[in-house]
Amino acid sequence: MAQPLEPTARSDGHNAAKSKPYWVEPVITMVILGVWVLYSLWEVLFHNTGTYHNYVSPYFSPGVGDWFGWHVLDALYVAWVPLLFRFSCYYYRKEYYRGFFWDPPACYAVDKPRPRYSGETKWPLAFNNLHRYAWYLALIVLIFLWKDAVEAFFFKNGFGVGVGSLILLVNAILLTFYTFSCHAFRHMVGGKKDCYSCDGKPTTSYKLWNRVSQWNTLHGTWAWASLASVWAADLYIRLLIMGVIHDVRLF
């Protein structure tokens, strides 16, 4: 029982000489997340559309600007939602507290600690305790991304498959795993209960919680994979809009 909670067995048999210096991992995190943030700023602040025929960039979906007739920095109306979701995500919290706050840079590191530390007890970091609300908003965005992924298969001349269609589909799938493996969602569907069999429905919430727990063991993997897929989807569509590349239709 309880397999999803069991960790993967770790081997202690490796030669410790192969261990990386403690600062390598946080620096890699800083570089990747830093580049991603810079790219996102470039995309959000310097572009007003993310649509190329039937492809819609995840940065610009849903088209809130179109709904209200606002057409200044369209992505700003939407991009804050996934940003908020990722910023308050339990996995990314680990990464950026280590990478950017250096708190700690790594376990049992020898660097001098920052003088003041209050964890997540004070604002603004206490905001992370409301991760569930970011999840609610991210779920709405995810629904629109699935709509975009489906529409990406319908070209002017009917159904077809382009490289862009596949990228948007993979992006929607990875974001689905990332969203539904969330710790806050795991709490919502059953983690908050102490007894699954006491309410007369012994299996429903347990099965749901158990499944989310299985996905949750790979939450970090989904987090990085979906970050890469959002990036790839947007970059592909941006390059199409700029005329740098042409969409490849598989059929």
């Binding site: 339990y90 680990k94 507290y97 706050f101 007890t121 206490a126 569930r132 710790h183 806050a184 983690g191």
Partner: peptide, 29 residues
Amino acid sequence: GMCNVTKCCTEVCPQHIRITDNAIIPLKE
């Protein structure tokens, strides 16, 4: 609330208990 879920406890646990994911985060929720 003082825990910022950086998972060092989970990394060093010789019993491989997923302390952060299965205890601390559910309690934070």
